[in-house]
Design a protein around this nucleic acid. Structure first.
Length: 112
DNA sequence: TAGGTGACCCGCG
DNA sequence: GCGCGGGCCACCT
């Protein structure tokens, strides 16, 4: 196990990994769920490091507007959208359709 | 060592 | 009601 890695990073990965297929979550929600008063920005940073982990579906994490803000950080700018479509999520112009319905709230789904 | 950036969000004008 | 700017903390160079 890692020893000098920020634990809160792993916490973000844990929540992201808990996101079921065909569902999406937001940075602010994860930050609030973990209690990261640091802000959703830190969650985005964790996603950047998520590239080191194979089981971190960062493509299921989008911003408050349901826009694939971080798609540009994937292997390819279209990788994120492709992955979401494979999950059955309709994405148009880098924007998640029915995002309001596909939204997955950990505090509710996990049963806080 | 120090400075700047960043996959964002909220508040104010 | 809408638009724009600032702010928060941690990682990177």
């Amino acid at each position: 196990m890692n020893t000098k890695k920020s634990n809160y990073f792993d916490l973000v990965y844990q929540v992201v990994r808990e996101i079921p297929p065909g569902r999406v979550c937001t940075y602010g929600t994860i930050a609030h769920y973990l209690g990261l008063k640091s802000g959703a920005r830190m969650v985005g940073y964790a996603m950047n490091a998520a590239h080191t982990l194979p089981d971190v579906p960062a493509h299921r994490v989008v911003n408050r507007a349901g826009v694939l803000t971080g798609k540009h950080h994937f292997a390819t700018p279209t990788r994120m959208q492709e992955l979401l479509e494979l999950e059955g999520i309709h994405v148009e112009k880098d924007q998640v359709q029915d995002f309001d319905k596909l939204f997955w709230d950990p505090e509710k789904e996990l049963g806080l």
